[in-house]
């Protein structure tokens, strides 16, 4: 059997996933990273995006959406501390579209500088959610 790495995904709202994986793909702040078993210890921040766990053995990949957070990697253990996370299948495309539109509106007619940063973050999150949905759809 192929070597596996233990994956725990928790978000501030609750426990999301726990299990073995052959490979974990995470949206790290410096670009997407792939983590195989025996990876060197690593801590990094996550940006909004899609997180995938390949359980191996020809089983289907698990998809998650995270809105940012931290990931800690030990040689045989990956811990994802997501700020908010959802299983990608539960993502609501209509809601994401709506959020994207709202964020773009806010960016278009910005009044106060305070809103700008918030709107940019919201836009980034909405876009990442939509991308995750699209990815998932293509898989099927």
């Amino acid at each position: 059997m192929a070597m596996t790495i233990h994956v725990d995904i928790v978000s501030a709202e609750g426990h999301m996933y726990s299990g073995q994986g052959e490979m974990v793909y995470a949206p790290a702040i410096m670009g997407e990273i792939g983590i195989a078993p025996r990876h060197a210890p690593l801590v990094t921040q996550l940006k909004p995006g899609e997180l995938r766990v390949d359980p191996g053995g020809g089983k289907e990949q698990e998809h998650f959406y995270v809105s940012g957070g931290m990931i800690e990697v030990q040689p045989f253990k990956v811990t994802v501390l997501a700020d908010t996370g959802v299983r990608a299948a539960d993502l609501d495309e209509a809601a994401a579209q709506e959020a994207k539109r709202r964020a773009e509106d806010a960016l278009a007619n910005q009044k106060a500088d305070i809103d700008l940063a918030k709107a940019q973050v919201e836009l980034a999150e909405a876009v990442a959610q939509l991308r995750a949905i699209e990815r998932l759809r293509k898989m099927r």
Binding site: M30, T44, Q45
Partner: peptide, 23 residues
């Protein structure tokens, strides 16, 4: 031993520790 920090130890630890205290 030590971790690999991306992008840098300072940013990562600051982010992590803030979250730790808050949580």
């Amino acid at each position: 031993w030590d971790y690999i920090y991306e992008p840098g130890a300072k940013e990562v630890l600051n982010g992590l520790l803030t979250r730790y205290i808050e949580s």
